[in-house]
Design a protein around this nucleic acid. Structure first.
Lengths: 218, 218
DNA sequence: TAGATTGTTAATCGATTAACAATC
DNA sequence: TAGATTGTTAATCGATTAACAATC
């Protein structure tokens, strides 16, 4: 019954649950119901219960979910109960931001290698990591058993970087470049291109320049 | 027939269409079919046609879509045919990255004001913009008619920043902080929290530590 | 004309929500 | 026991895909 085939929508909610649960844990809340989670996250409680039930029976009828236990379980599901090593290419401002974030986060995702294509950047240090040349990428990824690659280079260099990650046998790529990358089926790719977020946000602006136009609803 | 009620899924695809069309335009491609777009984007052609048809008849039967015309139309739909002003709070590495991006992008989204809560940052310059204190936020947003706010501060400060944006009458917020923000219904909020992207990516790793387990499919 | 491709309706598929027995 | 809340099945809702007439 395990792994019935979980939809992407479900997987994307898991980190959100984790975030709220972590906050609750900090506030020393022991137990939470799907109802309460639903209010906090603006989600239907049934959906939350169903999401969790795909992976096991984590709650107790009449009681709710134990916060600590549920955190542990979701971390297992997301595979961040172990440390997952991450490589980053692109030692610009965005790369710096991600590396710094790394320091404070307790998510078990650890950036352990940083690369850059530009000779000027190589050898400098970010968050105690020496920036390495691209020529070291494949070797380093293999040796350190790095599983995820982050791309924070300009769009025109992104596919090249992806290709090197693929050659090195990376399993997942988080791409910040505004480019559509071609990767083999077995490599998972997530795009985190904020320009697209901004553009879709712009869509929802207005009812202002154009006045409140509720005349042709049907 | 206009604005039948467009689903979020549709809106989120529009910037992707725009990106590919822009690329095609650079390569001087004049006309494109939903078929071709579908191949490039790994989407069903019928879906692309349907998405576009929500907003008007942009194509020509037997021919396809004129690239330049479709770009223009999608920009109108997304309201980026006009310049949209954006304010950013948090002059850290991420804030820098977004401001720089600004320079190169021709998306008509323009960051015109940068703020920070920390006195040490105030007065420094990012991409020709003086970093202003939070006390100037409301006034600046109103005066400059800024419509979108970007939040790149630590999680614990994010809600405060959001509240100030709301007070200033902002219409949309792009939040990079790993925090769930409460905003009034009329303010649109998009979360661009990359930790969640990384965590959901981690879910898809593996079939490696655990061996290829195809035994209990049904 | 024949081939291509749109816009759109109908069919399918999948995700969300409601409802409720089980049980703490 | 009575009240609360889960896990899960059934009902609903919405999104994707197929199919095709219209037409370039």
């Amino acid at each position: 019954m395990k792994q019935a085939k979980i939809s992407e929508a479900v997987v994307r909610r898991l980190p959100i649950y984790l975030q709220v649960l972590n906050e609750m844990h900090l506030r020393e809340i022991q137990t939470v119901s799907s109802q309460e989670l639903g209010v906090k996250l603006d989600l239907n409680p049934a959906q939350i219960r169903k999401d969790l039930a795909y992976f096991g029976e984590f709650g107790r009828k009449g009681i709710g979910y134990d916060v600590v236990y549920l955190i542990e379980k979701i971390r297992q599901i997301l595979k961040v109960d172990q440390t997952i090593k991450v490589a980053l290419v692109g030692a610009g401002n965005l790369g710096h931001a991600l590396c710094n974030y790394n320091k404070y986060s307790k998510d078990n995702m650890q950036i352990t290698a940083v690369f850059d294509v530009h000779p000027g950047k190589i050898g400098s240090s970010i968050n105690n990591l020496r920036v390495l040349p691209m020529s070291e990428l494949v070797k380093t990824v293999e040796e350190q058993k790095i599983r995820i690659g982050i791309i924070t280079v300009p769009a025109f260099e992104a596919q090249n970087v992806a290709n090197q990650f693929i050659e090195a046998g990376i399993e997942g790529i988080l791409n910040f470049a505004p480019a559509i990358l071609r990767v083999p089926e077995e490599v998972r790719i997530h795009n985190a291109d904020f320009t697209k977020e901004l553009l879709s946000l712009a869509y929802y602006l207005g009812r202002e320049g154009d006045a409140q136009d509720e005349s042709d609803l049907d």
